[in-house]
Write a protein that binds this DNA or RNA. Sequence first.
DNA 1: CTCCCGTGTCAAGCAAACTTGACACGGGCA
DNA 2: TGCCCGTGTCAAGTTTGCTTGACACGGGAG
Lengths: 77, 77
Amino acid sequence: MVKPTKVTNSIRALRFAQGQMTQAELAERVGVTRQTVIAIEQGRYSPSLEMAFQIARVFGVAVEDVFQYPRQEGATP
Amino acid sequence: MVKPTKVTNSIRALRFAQGQMTQAELAERVGVTRQTVIAIEQGRYSPSLEMAFQIARVFGVAVEDVFQYPRQEGATP
DNA sequence: CTCCCGTGTCAAGCAAACTTGACACGGGCA
DNA sequence: TGCCCGTGTCAAGTTTGCTTGACACGGGAG
């Protein structure tokens, strides 16, 4: 993937806030694999809406609180 | 698609609230095709996070306000 | 030191999301 | 009457999210 995604997230911070939850544990909680969590956490690609909702739910916050979407990317090619 | 998606949405209502915005116009505003908007609006599949953010932005509301995610359904085996 | 844990990475592959293009149908208007 | 508009649908194709499985590396515990 050449495009590192526009969406950023606070998953790592949220994980620690929830008492050192590991990536593997989060992965199991949301129902995906460890690799997927790592990739999303690093912003390699943006997850599906459903996954975003599930992640937000695990942390007990709103999706807007986990994922940040920058307004209108400058389209810098 | 056999699974009609778990995520529902209020796109149609939002479109009308914004003064009869057509599907084609919404599609162009979010940067996708007309078919994609129709499919999402009918809940045939859930969009990506980025698309969800863009749609919410067009309507000037939060993503939670456009898309509703039911909590943990019966876990269909 | 050696083993296990949490993390990160690569590769191949499937499925879902998204695209392009064509066609159908009802309603309003010239 | 004919035509444009908004909507919905089918089909085939590309992209990309997500999976499985294997391997690497630093740190803490035995």
